[in-house]
Design a protein around this nucleic acid. Structure first.
Lengths: 248, 248
DNA sequence: GCCCATTGTCTCATTATGATACAATGATAA
DNA sequence: TTATCATTGTATCATAATGAGACAATGGGC
């Protein structure tokens, strides 16, 4: 079955179950081998990659829709999810979807609500659903061309995450349970988009007093082993409430 | 004509012109006599106040719709407008609008896109349109009860503005052309929700070197007259690009 | 002309930051 | 076993930023 027939088939359900004109796109971030990753899919019939997305049930809260969509893509139940902006250009999908017949659900004009999700890379299994041909992690340093305005949505998500770095448990949700200061620094450098001083970074982070220091190191490599830390949830959450720097 | 007949009448146009299920709500901030204000309306048939809002033309960019809505309410053409979040609870309007017949446009489920606007209080003339009975400035310190989830939208707008205080021209857009350091401090204190040290605030702001100091003061009051300043647009915009504090 | 509230500016102790140095560690290879 | 080297943990020092407080300057009211 070619994708157009498939889409026609699926359109019937979509029109029945979902709210028209409203969609959801998720920017799913993971962190693996010192690199920030984004989960991308390839929709059937599309050359370019896109963000995993979906639609909102006629009687479903948009946040619940995002949770559902994310679970269907990653299997993950409890993920950090933050809605950050809506995207409603006219002609958002024109370039990539105008080859489809107008009756197909996807040809509508959609106002897309953008969410970003933070997941533990190791805990997730990307799922390819029936309207896509691929679902893979891509490094943010080597992002492929993306369909529609998804690149812009990704950029907005990253910027939003940057703003929230001192107020939301971003480190906790992207890193594994145990991690090292160099790990955390790489994550911060990627999100902030600039290099940070190694010694000063460590001094500052440790001064927050939000970590539990473990009595073990991570071996591997011909050099001194870094100490493993975890977040001290109580202190961490308390510190996030007022923000990790507090300039004013 | 009672409001139900009116709404039935207007519903026809709405269904014809606007995208269903998508609405826009604007949190319009102004600053007057050292107080932050929000523009609120009272919809016909409603006890509680609400945010000025509207709908998106079937072929209109959501940002353009927000600009149009704002202009119709304030007459202002060029206002600072920032979209910050979408609101899509099910039953958002149930409490306040379920008394209306189901056929009426307003009874739909709407996903509302939230914008906040910063305007010069002096330049604006609040407009009461045909579906509302009032349109007035209210002090954020004495906000009346609000309909639907509008209180929550307002809170989110304020929080967003707080986060953006160092990155967007918030002072410039809320204050008149000429202002004093005590004015600016009051504005910051209201947005941040806490008192700031007078002398240290002034030292810090002036150190940014983003102001033009005028050779005059504002007289009035049995005390020393504060110096008038304006923003130096070139330096101001440049400073905002990297942020006014830069902790990392 | 005195009083008082408010503003502009300064000082000083404390803290945070940037830059740099250096010892500690663990794998590798001689 | 020991030397080597990359990386990490930690210390140091100069500089900058911040918090707290003092005090003089100003303008209107009495």
């Amino acid at each position: 079955m070619d994708e157009i027939s498939l889409f026609e088939e699926r359109s019937k359900e979509f029109y029945k179950d979902y709210l028209p004109h409203v969609s959801i796109d998720c920017v799913v971030f993971g962190f693996h081998s010192n690199t920030l990753k984004v989960l991308l899919i390839r929709m059937k019939g599309q050359e370019h990659w896109g963000l995993p997305g979906g639609y909102v049930g006629k009687d479903e809260h948009i946040d619940d829709a995002a949770i559902r969509i994310l679970k269907s893509r990653t299997g993950a139940e409890k993920v950090f999810l933050e809605q950050f902006k809506a995207f409603g250009n006219t002609g958002r999908s024109e370039k990539d979807l105008s080859y489809l017949p107008e009756s197909i659900w996807f040809r509508q004009r959609f106002i897309s609500v953008g969410y970003y999700a933070l997941v533990d890379y190791e805990q997730i299994i990307p799922v390819v659903d029936d309207i896509s041909t691929a679902c893979e992690w891509k490094s943010v340093h080597e992002l492929p061309a993306m369909m529609m305005d998804h690149r812009q949505i990704y950029e907005a998500a990253l910027e939003n995450m940057r703003f929230q770095l001192n107020y939301k448990p971003i480190g906790y949700n992207l890193l594994p349970e145990e991690f090292t200061m160099p790990d955390l620094q790489k994550l911060y450098e990627t999100i902030l988009g600039k290099p940070l001083s190694r010694s000063n970074f460590q001094r500052k982070m440790l001064a927050y007093d939000i970590f539990i220091k473990h009595d073990k190191e991570r071996k591997g490599g011909a050099h001194r082993s870094p100490i493993l830390y975890s977040f001290d949830q109580v202190k961490y959450q308390a510190a996030l409430k007022t923000g990790l720097k507090e300039a004013w």
